[in-house]
Write a protein that binds this DNA or RNA. Sequence first.
DNA 1: ATATATGCAAAATGTTTGCAGACCC
DNA 2: GGGTCTGCAAACATTTTGCATATAT
Lengths: 169, 169
Amino acid sequence: MHDRRQSAVPDIESLMGQFHAYLSKKQLKSTRQRDLIAQKFFAAHGHISIEELLNLSRAENPRIGYATVYRTLKLLAECGLAAQRRFGDGQTMYETAGDTEHHDHLICIECQHVLEFQNDDIEHEQERVARSFGFSLVRHRLELYGLCPRARGIKGGWCPNEEQRKLSD
Amino acid sequence: MHDRRQSAVPDIESLMGQFHAYLSKKQLKSTRQRDLIAQKFFAAHGHISIEELLNLSRAENPRIGYATVYRTLKLLAECGLAAQRRFGDGQTMYETAGDTEHHDHLICIECQHVLEFQNDDIEHEQERVARSFGFSLVRHRLELYGLCPRARGIKGGWCPNEEQRKLSD
DNA sequence: ATATATGCAAAATGTTTGCAGACCC
DNA sequence: GGGTCTGCAAACATTTTGCATATAT
């Protein structure tokens, strides 16, 4: 198994580059707003809701509107840099996608934070299941919900919530 | 691996019983509308959207309103007999839940239909992943998206869409 | 009898769209 | 300069709520 906790931090410059490449290929324009929103999105490591993204963006440019965030996120999704996700029952979330390898999610139902992991055994088994039904597998989604060490009451237990903040900021 | 295609058909009587038990425990009332909606929901084997459920119910009682369907489904969710799910980007779906064993989903991205399966290897591996992060696993969600044999262009290929109709009706 | 449920319509959410003016190439 | 973008507000879609009437216990 492969723990991606430490690796992450995908190169924002490179992601912005991909975004700009897509825009110019489609003869669309780079604007202050799009850049700002994309930056904030990538900097959030891609687990973010429209509203959070709007607020982060407005911190730097208060005149940003909802529509622009929606439209920019749609562009990011079109070029494979963002993917819409709907965890649990909450709001629609977006995450970075398409960059490198696939990952699944491990979510603490107490502190709400999301960890990524990758496990080849599971991936292989998924292939086998699909094949056994005659399907060809295109993509999948796996989310594990549970309690992190701290939430389980382990003294000094590690909590992804805090851990992620340390890594992100 | 365990193919649940044939098994399913959870006993509708028993599910209705559980529902009624919950209602009376909570001093809520059994009504024609609630019973009708619950019946239709259980009979659909629990993969259904609000709108479909409304239409099925209206076929028998045209005066059923949206609100009643929403409210009934909320009750069913409260007592663990229904669970809200949001596959892909489509509509919010509801499914039966809490009855017996857990299952995952295999979804054809062409014909849109949903197959259930259960695979112990994957379940065990999920446990291991969670434990390796210090988590205790509470629940999970696994969805495989792919192409069914027919969608893949295999002549005479089996299509879950048709298959499920055969089994359900 | 009375507390709860229904059905309607209005309200609240979340997301998309149309348009006049602003901006990028 | 001309086509694209933005921000606003209005339009939509979906889900929830308030209320007068109907119904179950």
